[in-house]
Amino acid sequence: MIRAAAAAVALCALAAAPLWIPGGYYLNILSQILIYAIFALGLNLLVGYAGLVSLGHAGLFGVACYAVAWLVAAGAGQLVAALGALAVLLATTAAFAVLSLRSAGIGFLMITLAIGQILWGMAYRWIDLTGGDNGINLAARPQPFGISLAFATPFYYFTLIVFLVALASVAVFIASPLGASLKGTRDQPRRMSALGYNVWLIRFLAFLFSGLWSGVAGLLFCYYNQFVSPNVLSLGSSAEALLMVISGGSGTLLGPIAGAALVVVMKNVASAYIERWNFLLGAIFVAIVLFMPEGLVPGSARLGRRLWLRLRGVPAAGGAR
């Protein structure tokens, strides 16, 4: 009941955001948060629910990004370009999954890191195809049903709709039998085989689903910036996405969204005051892994509870007036 009410309030706040958020700059930041939240939702399917930590997901985000920009530059219509990009994305994701699912745990992490680097290398060095360091410009944002997305507000609503679809699809998946099977393969893969489950195929399907949302986020990111460069596929970008997932709390539905908000806001604030975003990114990473491995949201709650208990349990000197 309370959760339904909270969800309704959050939804209303998001829907009315252009009314209460002052100016296009902040609305654009909110759009960015939603785009990265979609990315993090996708990555969390693997990290949180399959127990497979990928350090190459920026590659999938970037492939969709590049594919749509390249197709539009090659003269394809926006719809064809978007569908073509998704096709390229799914093919890449399938190959990515087949290679990396030969392993789990640390091996999986290493292979995804290596494949992510290959994709980055392609973007950076295969200049004929990708323009190298110069990247590719996207001439214009698409106009779904004739509605222009050129301005902040319509683009925000477009992103919000995609975000809600992503969130709903992940929520449905997690509560489904297949979602429960996936969590089973995370906790006891061998037992799951003995119970009659095809562990590899379950992981493969989860990987495709994860890749799909990561790529859709990449697509939106390309529309948002109207530009794509190799930086999008870098290890730093993969690490950022992973930070969103684990900082918010991996394996929870809303954690990655909170993580995305946290990272995007910090990145924007940090870049306004200090230059050293990467240092901060690394420091937060280390701090979270060391002190709050369950994520910032559940972790803060735990630390807060402990503090509260201590305050109540031990009557402070000032308390006995």
Binding site: V53, G105, V286, L290, P293
Partner: peptide, 29 residues
């Protein structure tokens, strides 16, 4: 750092990843 996470391989890898970003930025500075 790593010893505090003995036995948790994944956490150790993530710490080395975080450190690599810190060192890179420090060198730039």
């Amino acid at each position: 750092l790593l010893r505090r996470l003995a036995g948790q391989e994944l956490a150790q890898v993530l710490v080395t990843l975080g450190l690599s970003f810190m060192i890179a930025d420090l060198c730039l500075m």
